[in-house]
Computed example of a mutant assay.
Amino acid sequence: MTSELGARLSAIDEKIADAARLAGRDAGEITRIVVTKFHPASLVRDLHALGVREVGENRQQELSAKTAELGDLDDLRWHFIGQAQTNKAAAIRRSADAVHSIDRDRLADALHRGAEDDRILDVLVQINLTDDPGRGGVAPDAAAALAEHVLSLPSLRLRGVMAVAPLDEEPASAFDRLRTVADGVRSLDPAADWISAGMTGDFTEAILAGATHLRIGSAITGPRPDRG
């Protein structure tokens, strides 16, 4: 029900405001992205009616389908936050306003090649904060080189960094390391000041570490529908 959705949204926004006060920050400087993975487009329409304008998707097929169905909501901003395949980069680019998961030169190149007009795509370098090279993201010590490559592609606008906190580390520690990487990327381009970090269980720690964009799903949307 829309009333329940609104109550969950308000509860999260109150917690974001509390965390911002704790960090001595203005909550208005923090962007709350509602992740609608596996939920129908109708839920996004309900969220829009409640004032939500920033929406996140993990899969290209869902992103493309929902943006097509909700084309009349032209003030929505769509964030692609999942791992991206290079062969789907053009489709992602057609639907997304921002891509948070650039983790290799080839993906940046594919997104650049996918430009069909003069629209500039906002992108973030995804940082792997784990010791597992198989996880999404570039190693922290390779972030600057990838950021420099993105800066060489005129249809992309480097906005900052993104990461997911490891399960085996305190979020505060992980986000402090991310903040150091973010500072290095911002030294290459002062406008690259986004830090996309923090989900339902750790957004307070992310805000304390300087996160500018939070990715929050089921705490707002409710349980994901059964896909079986």
Rank of each mutant, 00 (worst) to 15 (best):
E4G: 07
L5A: 08
R8M: 03
K15N: 09
A19T: 04
G24I: 07
T31I: 07
I33Q: 11
V35L: 09
K37C: 11
F38T: 14
L43M: 15
V44R: 04
L50I: 09
R53L: 04
E54A: 15
E54K: 14
L63R: 04
S64P: 00
A65N: 08
E69F: 03
D72I: 02
D74W: 01
D74F: 02
D75F: 02
H79F: 05
G82W: 05
A84Y: 00
N87E: 02
A90W: 05
A90R: 13
S95P: 00
D103W: 02
D105P: 06
R106N: 02
L107S: 09
A108H: 02
D109P: 00
L111Y: 05
G114N: 08
E116C: 02
V125W: 07
I127A: 03
T130S: 15
R135L: 13
A139F: 06
A144W: 01
A144V: 12
A145H: 04
A145P: 01
H149P: 03
V150I: 15
L151K: 09
S155Q: 07
L156W: 14
R157K: 13
R159P: 08
A163N: 11
A165N: 12
A165P: 03
D168Q: 11
E169V: 15
A172C: 02
R177V: 04
A182Q: 12
P190S: 13
W194R: 11
M199R: 09
G201K: 10
F203S: 13
A206H: 08
A206K: 12
A206R: 10
G210R: 05
T212W: 10
S218L: 10
A219T: 06
G222D: 01
R224T: 03
